[in-house]
Design a protein around this nucleic acid. Structure first.
Lengths: 253, 253
DNA sequence: TAGTGGTCTAGACCACTGA
DNA sequence: CAGTGGTCTAGACCACTAG
């Protein structure tokens, strides 16, 4: 990071700063390397700390930086591709299962979920909580809603609750033949519980993947999964791993 | 918004404020209604304007609010579902074409794009710029990279450049038989040009959809599309419109 | 305990919109 | 023009991590 001054330009300081830092990251830093602390960086560029932080937030949103309280700011590795489009990676129990069941409860779901499942609003459904790990890092937290009708042979004795119960539900669910799945992706922010599971602070940006599993002409299950937006790239279809995007698009015209 | 004071809680003020406002939005406001201005709101809750703004930013990220400089803050309508998983909605020229070609240039693409296309890094490719409109609002800006080999019958005479040229390229491209497509979704921020096209400020959060189109065993084209993260929900597969998510996930335990 | 990022304040000025 | 959100400052204190 050679120069230490910002020219006066009509664009916001924090945006210009973002660009300068981004180029510095490309040319002068290695993945995992720690940056100078925020107070030093702000002084070096002659801006207030809040302005510097605005630039860092942008870069973190783009997956270029990783910040941890009490530790520092490090250069983030490229985002990991996470397959979500094919049943292999989400329908429970398939071979390379990166999902780890955490809990299971029987309770009435949110109204919107009940509507999508076509169950009564106060009819309890199995609610499985799972977390997904990739490359040793937690990447997603999921709530899977399974109406009792989808797991008819589930015996109450298997296990009362907890991970064992969750596995029993998933095992029974998998006996059904999945026809197809429909997904939607949108931006959201992590709630307190998801944040803890994803090792982030509350409000951290997440990609919310809502998936409806269809089997036997019915909605067999419905999943709401939150993926870390800073570290994940969601892939659909054959896991063809296209890695193109890097920073805001700029078109020389 | 009845109460005007925040209790002292161990959670950040802006987060608590976000929750309070979110509930107020559900119960006391209609879509399109304008909120009091930031200075009034901050005073009403007894916090600094910056803190209030942090809460509003969260809600905007979640698609609950829409803020426009010089105008005010309004309650946003639910996100619109935008189909991106099936060729019908992205492969050029299909029936219900919501895409509007804006420009076309012949130029060497970014290195990463050239690698994915399996062309030489300095080999020029057709670069089509399109924008997608839904419900009268711009929702996406796209750069479509088409190697000359994918449009062999394109005559240089059709049109030198501009929208007409873009349409010619798309028309020729469509003559190929699309086998399948692979997509990836990640979070990004809008560059200056995308931002203008999407009617947002630079740095606005976008969902970057990178798609590789396969035809005749080759990569026929590659697209990098940026969708407004605040207003869009990307749907994959049959356009089954699951609308579940609303605010951070909270699990009563 | 020293150093980091996270939160919060109270101001100021700017860029933009619409009447 | 008045009013809005957007940017920026210079501080302060807190929560967390690691030696």
């Amino acid at each position: 990071m050679g120069t230490t001054q910002l020219e006066s330009v009509p664009e916001p300081k924090y945006w210009h700063l973002r660009t300068v830092l981004s180029e510095a990251l490309d040319s002068e830093f290695e993945v995992g390397e720690i940056l100078p602390n925020e107070r030093d960086l702000a002084a070096r560029f002659g801006v207030a700390r809040a302005t510097l932080r605005q630039a860092l937030e942008q870069l973190e949103l783009e997956g270029r930086l990783q910040r941890r309280r009490g530790v520092g700011t490090t250069v983030a590795p490229p985002r990991v591709g996470v397959a979500v489009g094919t049943p292999d990676h989400t329908w429970p129990g398939t071979a390379d299962d990166a999902w780890q069941p955490a809990d299971c409860r029987l309770a009435a779901p949110p109204a919107a979920v009940a509507d999508a499942l076509e169950t009564d609003r106060d009819e309890p459904v199995h609610t499985v909580r799972r977390s997904r790990v990739s490359h040793g890092q937690p990447v997603a937290a999921e709530l899977l809603y399974v109406p009792p009708a989808s797991v008819p042979e589930l015996t109450a004795i298997d296990a009362p609750s907890g991970p064992a119960r969750a596995r029993a539900v998933l095992r029974e669910l998998q006996r059904g033949d999945l026809e197809r799945q429909e997904s939607a992706v949108e931006l959201g922010s992590a709630g307190a519980d998801d944040a803890k599971e994803l090792d982030r602070l509350p409000g951290a940006p997440v990609l919310v993947v809502t998936t409806r599993y269809l089997a036997g002409g019915r909605t067999a299950a419905l999943s709401v999964a939150t993926y870390r937006a800073d570290t994940c790239r969601l892939t659909f279809g054959e896991s063809g791993d296209v890695q193109i995007h890097h920073g805001p698009q700029t078109q020389a015209s």
